[in-house]
Simulated scan of single mutants.
Amino acid sequence: MARVSQEHLDARRRQILDGAAICFARNGFHATSMQDVLKEVDLSAGAVYRYFSGKEELIAAVVGEVLGSVRGAFEEAVHLSPPPAPDVLITQVLGRTLAARANLTVDGEPAFPRLVIQVWAETLRNKELAVVLHEGYAGVRGAWSRIVQGYQDAGMMRSDVDPDHVARTMIAGAMGFLAQQSLFGPAPAEVLGDGLRALMGMTDVPAATGGSQLG
């Protein structure tokens, strides 16, 4: 009997993970059964269980990939000196992350943003996955804090602000943009980049010009 190549094993595992990701993005983790996954990937139970012992292990693998892809993209930017400005960097990171999963769709729309929302919701009830999420978030925060420190060292950003505060804000922008895509439909990452660029370029409006004053 011919031995199955590692390439074939890796491709089959990829097929299962992608199919499961589509199912989870479509209906959530709880409403998705292993039968749903088997139907999506068009494989027998034996073929799937060769790679994953059950639904919980499959969930953990999908969650790990989702968090790892986002974290890895941001951590790559740490090695750039100086890194691109935030509007450019976050557009590149999100664009690359979304493009890497562009083959996964639900009802004709990208599955990845919906999957991210499902992952966040699942970690609220699953303590093991919550630990993975917190570790991933801490990693992204640390990476972004180092990026912000690079901005400050290069004189690109004021130095009297805690890098972690800026990191949290930039992460919030990325998370919010993914949430919008999930809820309201896809949009290119350049939309977020344009918005950030406009906010970063704001200047104080002198009172003499008639600018409105709050308070």
Rank of each mutant, 00 (worst) to 15 (best):
F74W: 11
V116H: 00
G176A: 13
L17Q: 02
S44V: 09
Y151H: 10
A187V: 06
E65M: 09
I147M: 00
P86E: 09
V191H: 05
V205Q: 15
A31C: 00
P82E: 02
L89D: 06
D87Y: 06
T32K: 00
M175N: 04
Q152E: 05
F29S: 10
I90H: 00
S81D: 06
A174K: 10
S159N: 06
Q6K: 09
V140P: 10
E56R: 15
A167R: 10
G155L: 04
D36M: 10
A172L: 08
N27Q: 14
L43H: 07
R3I: 07
E65G: 15
S145H: 08
Q152H: 05
V140S: 09
V4G: 05
F184D: 08
A111E: 08
A25G: 02
T105M: 10
G210A: 03
S145I: 13
L104C: 06
V37C: 01
R3V: 14
A198C: 09
Q181F: 09
Q6T: 07
L124P: 03
H79M: 10
Q118E: 15
V161G: 11
G142K: 04
R26W: 03
T105N: 04
V4C: 00
T123M: 07
Q35K: 14
E190G: 01
F52D: 03
A60D: 14
A154I: 07
F29E: 06
A2T: 07
A179L: 09
V41W: 10
T105D: 12
T32W: 05
V63W: 03
R50C: 00
E57N: 13
S69L: 09
S53H: 05
